[in-house]
Design a protein around this nucleic acid. Structure first.
Lengths: 359, 359
DNA sequence: TTGTAGGCGTTATCAA
DNA sequence: TTGATAACGCCTACAA
């Protein structure tokens, strides 16, 4: 017999009460455990009499019964759990997405395991393996690269997943992304309307779909507005971060191009531009306009406040979670993809080009 | 018999191979499951012959065996899991702490469940209940208030926990915090050395130990430097955020105090000051110096870059995780508290007081 | 409508 | 040193 009240061990210390189990509830209600299980489970409750159900539920409440999700998982092979694979939680892009995901999951009784890959494929493998061993029912992945054989392999194995922010070529998996192309188009139009003619692009890495899509959209937009379409005005950054943004900006300036505005692949790359402006005494927006992408928190507090493309990160997370839950519930549903609308947020980093003598 | 190779169901679809279980490994190695278990488990490996262990381990590797942590948890009543209770993941303070925690947990085979309370006691209760039902072995709590009966109750119930950033009065629980008092002392000394005599303090909420400790340290430091010790120079913010920082700053200015510098309770409150400066055309640091606390990411990119107290957030997380693991391993160890060293990071938001006519 | 029995995958306690 | 057995808490055919 397992003690359910604090009791004394031979040594005399107080032993903690174990949490009540289903059997304790059943006993208290004077029914069998199976009956109690049915009564407590909304989907099987119709199998027991209303009176019995009432008694069981009351007993459960009295005892403070909480079902043991571990035992339940072992039996049902479901964990009510999903994995969340992101590069790095300290990148301010991700927390709002994570909150969006959790808000939806929580409402459905699911929880998320968050893992950071630091963009290391080895680490990604290991962390995803660990998630799988914990029986997650699906994955939300924010680390996808254009060519990502590991994700393809997972998909082959029937692992349910949803991609956020990114896509993988030739992979039939649901995605939720911002409308990158429109965002870039808005940025270019804004600069064109201010009077800029030579606009540069600091592209994100082309190993990511986001980098590719934004780059392509940039070229399109430039042509659409009849602006100078000079390939040397685009530099690809090695990573989506400040340091590589700064490097790319330096390269661009060293080419001695007479551009007056930059569309940065994202806000962090734009931050790198700011660093280079400080280094070289370039004044923004007087001498150079910059547009970012994402509208990260606090980016409006910069010097100068950054004009950028606003992305509904919370919604991206929420939609992705909803999609994954859909996949889990109806495994045969066809993968949909969602493109969420973006907005241009004009601040002080963009202005008409100065009349300064161009070199 | 459970099929371990993909097989055909009556309907003809391919059935996914189940992941191999311990029994599969045992069978492949020609031993009993119990033996395989012992061989695979480092702590019991000495109970089997070296030869058997080798065979089992090899078989496990060949089959790609991954122990099922759910089954293991059910048996051992341990989940290798801890709960992480924070107010809001989108507050940039927390991601580095979380990473520090995860880095340590991961090395020990533990994982963390993160929950956000949004500083809502009701929600905190619910989320912690849910963590407990998931059998977490302990909690790391970043939401503690000075008076926090719920945490006391948990402690009474024997729930293992470690507090980060905060303390609870009369609660004998291990804590990991930054050395707030020293940080504030450094800030005040820096301002005093610049020549400021009337220094204000925008205190964090006194419902949090951090708010109390920093406030008290401020008064001490002011007296130590023989500066003007005027209680009306301190305003308490309702929350640790921008909006309430701005409100408090407006109140301070409206009192028409002739202070020339502000020690903000944290960086977000300092951000609120920046907003008010913009509103009222006050130039920082020329007319007003500000010091923040925490050295949040990107705070160096503000206009002007913020002078602040640098806090080792990653270390705070790492130490807290280590402490919790210690508590889990040796339940009887006495609670220790750790005070981590801080540094003053001088940037451009502080300067000598101007010679402008005071009022 | 309710009870019985068996098992999810693992580990602990026996006995051999 | 290994094997047999039972049990962790829950769910679900099946039988009553």
């Amino acid at each position: 017999m397992r003690p359910n009240q604090p009791s004394l061990t031979p040594a005399g210390e107080v032993k903690r009460a174990q949490p009540p189990t289903l059997r304790d509830v059943a006993e208290a209600a004077g029914v069998h455990a199976a009956t109690a299980s049915r009564a407590l489970n909304p989907s099987t409750r119709r199998l027991v009499s209303a009176e019995t159900a009432r008694r069981v539920i009351k007993a459960a409440k009295t005892l403070g019964y909480q079902p043991n999700p571990i035992a339940r998982s072992l039996k049902t092979a479901k964990s009510s759990t999903v994995g969340l694979v992101i590069p790095d939680l300290t990148n301010p892009l991700f927390p709002p997405i994570v909150r969006g995901i959790e808000d939806v999951l929580e409402a459905e009784g699911f929880s998320a395991w968050i893992v950071n890959t630091d963009n290391d494929p080895e680490r990604e493998r290991a962390r995803i393996d660990s998630l799988r061993s914990r029986q997650v029912e699906g994955l939300i992945i924010a680390t996808a690269r254009v060519d990502h054989p590991f994700l393809e392999a997972l998909h082959e194995q029937g692992v349910k997943m949803v991609l956020v922010n990114r896509r993988v070529e030739n992979l039939e998996v649901p995605c939720v992304t911002a409308d990158d192309a429109t965002g870039i188009a808005l940025a270019v139009r804004h600069l064109a309307e201010l009077g800029h003619r030579r606009i540069a692009h600091l592209a994100g890495p082309h190993s990511t779909s986001t980098g590719v899509v934004r780059s392509r959209a940039f070229r399109h937009a430039i042509r659409d507005h009849g602006l100078e379409d000079d390939p040397s005005l685009t530099v690809e950054c090695a990573h989506w971060n400040e340091a590589d943004g700064a490097t790319a900006m330096r390269e661009l300036l060293d080419r001695d191009n007479r551009f007056t505005a930059v569309v940065a692949g994202n806000d962090l790359i734009a931050l790198g531009c700011y660093d280079v402006f400080a280094e070289r005494g370039i004044s923004c927006p007087d001498e150079m306009s910059v547009v970012g992408f994402n509208d990260m928190p606090f980016i409006d507090k910069l010097r100068p406040p950054l004009t950028t493309v606003g992305v509904p990160h919370h919604d991206i997370g929420a939609e992705a979670a909803r999609m994954l839950l859909d996949c889990i519930e109806e495994p045969d549903r066809r993968p949909r993809s969602l493109l969420l609308p973006v907005t241009l947020v004009v601040r002080d980093s963009t202005a008409p080009p100065s009349a300064r003598p161009s070199s």
